[in-house]
């Protein structure tokens, strides 16, 4: 951490979104699409809110059993890919560097800047406090939706886990609210990605190069990194 070993200084700069991350991002996008579309189909068979039915054009599966088939297929993609992502984020330190720390003051400042249209999008490599909050938040919601999903799938086999939440209908409601939060996130996320197209492009090509943090700390030669972002 403090004194750089030769090995860390030798490491070259890397892309903002390394290839494994980009693959996991788009696999996750596919999994979320399947899970939400099929989840809406399953929901329609016994709605939680009388006023809310998802239109047939938006659901996956003409019949409930097709929706269930898709849901229990998509869950493997979502969970396996999600576990890879969490492991990757923790092991490489990406979560720590990109998403932490978040201070409430920064969040307020970012919101104020956003309302005054003063937010800068010049540097894609640094997330503002609101981005950090939303990305961290959606990861936590993702974990919660998988746990409540497990409890709905196996309320008896995992009865100890299910018991932490309450009755079957409470778990259903939490699962539904997590879905709503993810849908809200996706709407904001996709809108902003379209408003700032270079961010969308970055998730396809890898984006600008960023200096390896350890290499930077060691003041190592990373001259070919033009968009380096050290404080």
């Amino acid at each position: 951490m403090s004194t750089a070993t030769p090995k860390t200084t030798v490491r070259k700069e890397k892309l903002l979104h390394p290839l494994p991350l980009r693959i996991m991002h788009w696999v996750n996008a596919l999994a979320i699409f399947i899970m939400i579309g099929s989840g809406w189909r399953i929901y329609n068979d016994d709605v939680i809110f009388g006023w809310l039915h998802f239109p047939d054009a938006l659901v996956i599966g003409k019949w409930a059993q097709y929706g269930l088939q898709w849901h229990f297929f998509g869950m493997w993609i979502l969970v396996i890919n999600g576990l890879c992502y969490l492991t990757y984020g923790i092991v490489t330190g990406r979560f720590r560097h990109k998403l932490l720390p978040i201070s409430p003051r920064d969040v307020i400042a970012t919101v104020r800047d956003a309302l005054h249209f003063r937010l800068s999008h010049d540097d894609l490599t640094v997330y503002n406090a609101v981005q950090k909050t939303l990305y961290l938040g959606v990861i936590l919601v993702g974990i919660l939706i998988v746990i409540t999903g497990l409890c709905l799938w196996k309320p008896i086999q995992f009865s100890e886990l299910a018991g932490l939440f309450g009755s079957f209908q409470i778990i259903r409601l939490i699962h539904f609210l997590c879905m709503s939060a993810i849908v809200g996130f996706v709407l904001v996320h996709v809108s902003l990605a379209l408003l700032v197209p270079q961010s969308l492009l970055a998730m396809l090509t890898g984006g600008p190069t960023v200096g390896d943090v350890l290499a930077v700390e060691a003041a190592a030669p990373v001259p070919e990194s033009p968009t380096e972002t050290t404080p």
Binding site: D56, I60, K62, Y66, Q69, F72, F73, W76
Partner: peptide, 21 residues
């Protein structure tokens, strides 16, 4: 509905989904 383009019903898709099931 008109085009009947629900992929879930395609034989190959059903086969794959039932294999997962």
């Amino acid at each position: 509905l008109l085009t009947g383009c629900d992929v879930s019903e395609e034989d190959s898709v059903q086969k794959a989904l039932r294999a997962v099931s």
